[in-house]
């Protein structure tokens, strides 16, 4: 029994068959389809995919931030035993902050422009203290805020604390978001392309800092990025998204070392490296298209290895070695077979 428990330990986050559609004037746009993944305690899961692949949608879905009116959502999201889709708002709000926290894509937009940095961190500290019923004074909280700023290596921390977000650089703002994460010490941190808006040097610094914080606090992280190289440098496992579907997921060494899905292969080939010149960079041909996306392999229109079988249905996610991959090259299994073969030639 005891040994068993160790094996079946509940993951921090479990997403099962999640589908999200955006409602818009012209109809609905599918952003995520039948997505399942989990993150266990202390694990860093990288979520990689090109722009529009649904990464932010996944993050917003997990944190229950999607606007109900504009989206249609189905599937299950379980975070620390709470059903994040059907739970009451008050219950979810109790988890936000100290259990789950999110860092957004654009550091310039993620802090309240009318509040001093200090006050915004103090707000986070207050939430945590209130929940752990700890007594504190305002000045203690402020001192603590400055300490967190020092922790994320902001020079002149007490000076910066008094400033407003617009007076700081993007890197500084993103560090402040990290300081907030430190203040809340969540079980799960979702970081949505936290370094994309930054220049390369700052990017590396912030990344190092994130890794250090994660090592120290043992929090689980969903690390979203479009850069496979960045994901490789800090993630335990990597999930590759294309067209709102999980195409490949597995341990970093497996996904990067033995990529299975042609899209993953393409992503790896387009990583600039010292041995390759810019000119030799192989980009993936073509553009993402929504056409036939619910009937065939989403990547087929751009895939160099595409065969008629790729358009026979939506391939299933199947286990190959250490990874799971959604490609008929490994096994001709379909989640859904295309019932109308006359359309195949057309698309």
């Amino acid at each position: 029994m005891l040994t068993n428990q160790k094996l079946t330990i509940e993951p921090t986050l479990r997403v099962n068959n999640l589908s999200v559609e955006y409602r818009s004037k012209g109809g609905t746009v599918p952003a995520l389809r039948n997505l399942s993944l989990s993150i266990s305690e202390g694990e860093i899961l990288g979520v990689v995919g090109e722009s529009g692949s649904g990464k932010t949608t996944l993050a917003l879905g997990v944190t229950n931030l999607l606007r109900k009116k504009e989206t249609k959502l189905s599937g299950e999201i379980e975070f620390l035993g709470t059903d994040m889709i059907r739970a009451k708002l008050s219950e979810i709000n109790r988890l936000r902050g100290t259990e789950i926290f999110m860092i957004f894509q654009d550091p310039f937009l993620s802090l309240n422009p009318l509040m001093r940095v200090k006050d915004q961190i103090v707000e986070a500290i207050k939430v945590r203290n209130r929940r752990s019923s700890r007594n504190y004074t305002r000045s203690e909280a402020e001192k603590e805020a400055v300490e967190y700023l020092e922790d994320v290596r902001i020079g002149d921390a007490s000076e910066v604390a008094r400033r407003y977000p617009h007076q700081l650089s993007g890197g500084q703002n993103q560090r402040i978001m990290l300081a907030m994460a430190l203040a809340e010490k969540p079980k799960l941190l979702i970081a949505d392309e936290p370094t994309t808006a930054l220049d390369v040097t700052t990017q590396a610094q912030v990344l190092g800092l994130l890794k250090e914080i994660v090592d120290r606090t043992k929090m689980s992280v969903m690390f979203i990025t479009h850069d496979l190289a960045v994901a490789g440098s800090i993630c335990d496992r990597i999930a590759v998204l294309y067209g709102g579907m999980l195409q490949e997921i597995g341990p970093t060494s497996s996904v990067l070392g033995h990529p299975k899905h042609p899209y993953t292969v393409g992503l790896i080939q387009s990583i600039p490296s010292k041995t390759k010149n810019q000119g030799e960079l192989e980009a993936i041909q073509g553009y993402f298209t929504l056409e036939g996306i619910d009937r065939i392999c989403a990547f087929a229109p751009r895939c160099p290895y595409a065969r008629p079988a790729c358009r026979a249905g939506v391939p299933s996610l199947i286990r190959v070695d250490e990874s799971e991959v959604r490609c008929i090259n490994y096994s001709q299994m379909y989640d859904k077979v295309d019932i109308d073969p006359s359309e195949k030639g057309a698309s």
Binding site: R94, R96, M102
Partner: peptide, 27 residues
């Protein structure tokens, strides 16, 4: 209400009322 900083406030766990009537309203 659509901005990230309101979402940040919500994610901090300050509660919807504070996020809407302090962070969003003031802005």
């Amino acid at each position: 209400l659509k901005t990230d900083y309101v979402r940040t406030a919500i994610m901090k766990g300050v509660g919807n009322r504070r996020a809407v009537y302090l962070h969003a309203l003031k802005n």
